[in-house]
């Protein structure tokens, strides 16, 4: 290592030192302990007992585990792309020159502000089979809507729809990113006669691609760890009709704090970690070429 390289490294480490302190001081110990627990029979209140890989073996034959895993995947496969597309779409709209822009931005952000209990009550009513807003709207176009939350086929679509409601945060991130796209690029595209799609595809997307990548990774992590919405709406561990809305983290939480099997829950956590890591790695590989870095 040359002198310059060493100096750079020291400066870099100095800049990231808050993170290093937090990692070593606050994060590392819990992570190591949870890895340790995943090889133990541990009920939180008494001492953990080492049992080798038994927790991992149990997972293989635990039908509820597999059900929760497949539920989560089905949910993520729909919720993630839909959420990313919808938030980018509305962010671009909210960045246009329109009247009442500030008001619209606030309105789109509202569901992210309202406490979970209130939103959960609204969702329960929206999806109500008889008086629900959704079914009333469907009835107007002549469709007899399902009883969303009572029918195992429709619980996951309902959860995907509710997740779209929380795109306010992502819209805000995109809005911040859109401020960095130079006006001149659009102006020169106007001169060349490009239409809006052309501009979006060849200017907006590449310019904000680092942030799109960010939302993709966060979206993978977030949708596979979905917890609060289904937990509140389906009242905890049973996960709706025939466990059709029992998601991975809900099952994990219930295993840890209601069944007191912290060892098993830790093992589940580490399996999920591996899955998310693999998916993130694949997403990074697949998008690497398309991400445009300013440097």
């Amino acid at each position: 290592m040359t002198r310059i390289e060493r100096k750079r490294m020291l400066t870099g480490l100095a800049f990231i030192s808050p993170w290093i302190i937090g990692f070593v001081g606050l994060t590392l110990y819990p992570i190591i302990m949870s890895l340790h627990y995943s090889f133990c029979d541990y009920d939180i209140l008494s001492e953990p007992v080492f049992i080798g890989t038994l927790n991992y073996q149990d997972m293989l034959i635990d039908k509820v585990f597999w059900k929760s895993l497949s539920n989560t995947f089905i949910y993520a496969v729909f919720a993630l792309p839909l959420g990313m597309a919808a938030s980018l779409f509305f962010a671009v709209l909210l960045n246009c020159r329109i009247k009442g822009k500030s008001l619209f931005r606030v309105l789109f952000f509202l569901p992210s502000l309202v406490p979970m209990v209130a939103t959960a009550m609204i969702w329960l009513w929206m999806f109500n089979g008889k008086f629900g807003l959704l079914n009333n709207m469907l009835e107007m176009i002549g469709i007899n809507g399902p009883s969303w939350l009572n029918d195992e086929l429709w619980t996951k679509p309902a959860m995907v729809l509710t997740s779209l409601w929380g795109i306010g945060n992502t819209i805000v991130i995109y809005l911040a990113a859109l401020q960095d796209v130079p006006r001149e690029l659009y102006e020169s595209a106007d001169i060349d006669g490009g239409n809006w799609w052309h501009k979006f595809r060849h200017i907006t997307c590449p310019m904000i691609s680092p942030v799109i990548y960010f939302n993709l990774v966060i979206g993978i992590i977030g949708s596979l760890q979905v917890f609060a919405q289904p937990y509140i709406m389906f009242g905890g561990a049973t996960g709706g009709p025939n466990r059709s809305a029992l998601f991975y983290t809900v099952y994990l939480y219930e295993t840890a704090f209601s069944y007191n099997k912290m060892g098993y829950a830790s093992a589940m956590a580490w399996v999920l970690f591996i899955i998310i890591l693999l998916l993130t790695w694949m997403a990074t590989k697949a998008t690497r070429k398309h991400i445009h870095y300013g440097g």
């Binding site: 561990a237 049973t238 009709p241 025939n242 466990r243 219930e254 209601s258 069944y259 007191n260």
Partner: peptide, 19 residues
């Protein structure tokens, strides 16, 4: 000792039989 788990299994079973 495993009441919470037992109870949840029961709730699911009742729901399955009901539907």
């Amino acid at each position: 000792p495993i009441w919470n788990e037992y109870k949840n299994e029961f709730i699911v079973a009742y729901d399955q039989a009901f539907t």
